[in-house]
């Protein structure tokens, strides 16, 4: 097995116009592992996924996937690389005009010449893996949030990718669905021999399933380690995040003028 990490990011900087989003990011995703990228909303986690998937180009630095520098690929090379990637979007992003079956079969029909009966069998395998074989004829509008996320998960692994990226897979789910998705991410990763990147701010659920964690704050990696190391971390930001404290390095109050001054201004 190739021992080179599947994803290597070196000195990555990214800005929208003049607004700096990511700065000096270095991280590695080893093969066969589930790695979480955590941080509060708007800290640049999803942007990082889009840079890995080649939907955005870095301002400077390098994103390497399977030995290829992503932003140096031409469009054919990029599409060839994406065929070996799966991505689960925050709310599933299922195609609303297609049934569950057709959503999962979509990539097989687009990228392969497999006969329809073989596609049927493959789709059934994927849906069985996420426990939704019986929902094959439903439309996305007939699915609950958790079911939609599971269908999207089946779709993201339809071509047995080497890398699966999950953008907030736990957002808005009830505790049972949340646990199901967590277990599926781990089991599918191990069964496929793939690598997974889980972008999330759901600490407790993700720490149960991941091998390694990177913490991002204000566009920088502020901490990293295994799940246990993160739980025991003394870094104030990580401690506040993991234990869900209302106040700390991330302040409760949005920056404003002193409270007393504001009151006096109103009186005057």
């Amino acid at each position: 097995m190739n021992q080179e990490p599947l994803v290597q990011i070196r000195d990555l900087n990214f800005s929208y116009d003049n607004r700096k989003i990511l700065s000096g990011i270095n991280l590695t995703i080893p093969r066969g592992k589930v790695v979480a990228i955590m941080g509060s909303s708007g800290c640049g986690k999803t942007t990082l996924l889009r840079l890995i998937g080649g939907q955005l180009k870095p301002s400077s630095g390098e994103v390497k996937v399977n030995g290829q520098i992503v932003d140096q690929l031409d469009s054919a090379g990029l599409y060839a690389m994406r065929r070996r990637m799966g991505m689960l979007f925050q709310f599933g992003a299922l195609f609303t005009d297609m049934s569950v079956f057709d959503n999962v079969a979509f990539q097989m029909r687009e990228h392969t010449d497999l006969p329809e009966d073989l596609i049927h069998d493959l789709v059934m395998m994927k849906l069985h893996a996420v426990g939704l074989r019986g929902a094959q004829n439903l439309m996305p509008s007939e699915l609950s949030g958790g079911m939609a996320r599971r269908v999207a998960l089946a779709r993201s692994i339809s071509l047995d990718p080497m890398l699966v990226m999950y953008d907030e897979p736990f957002a808005g789910l009830d505790p049972i669905s949340l646990s199901v998705i967590g277990v599926l991410i781990r089991k599918l990763n191990d069964a496929l021999g793939a690598s997974s990147i889980v972008v999330t701010h759901d600490v407790q659920e993700s720490l149960k399933i991941v091998d390694y964690v990177y913490f991002v704050s204000a566009g920088k990696i502020v901490a990293e380690g295994t799940a246990d190391e993160i739980r025991q971390s003394k870094i104030p930001y990580v401690h506040q995040f993991v234990w869900g404290e209302a106040d700390g390095p991330v302040p409760f109050h949005y920056p404003s003028m002193p409270y007393g001054d504001e009151m006096m201004q109103a009186v005057n």
Binding site: G53, Q55, Y79, A80, R82, R83, M85, M87, F89, Q90, F91, A93, L94, F95, T96, F106, Q107, E110, H111
Partner: peptide
């Protein structure tokens, strides 16, 4: 527009399918 807002076009791109063609 709704396909764009619900990230269906992005999902298509990430599946190596060109949304302009498809």
């Amino acid at each position: 527009g709704l396909m764009k807002a619900t990230e269906q076009l992005s999902a298509m791109e990430m599946m190596a399918v060109n949304p302009i063609a498809r």
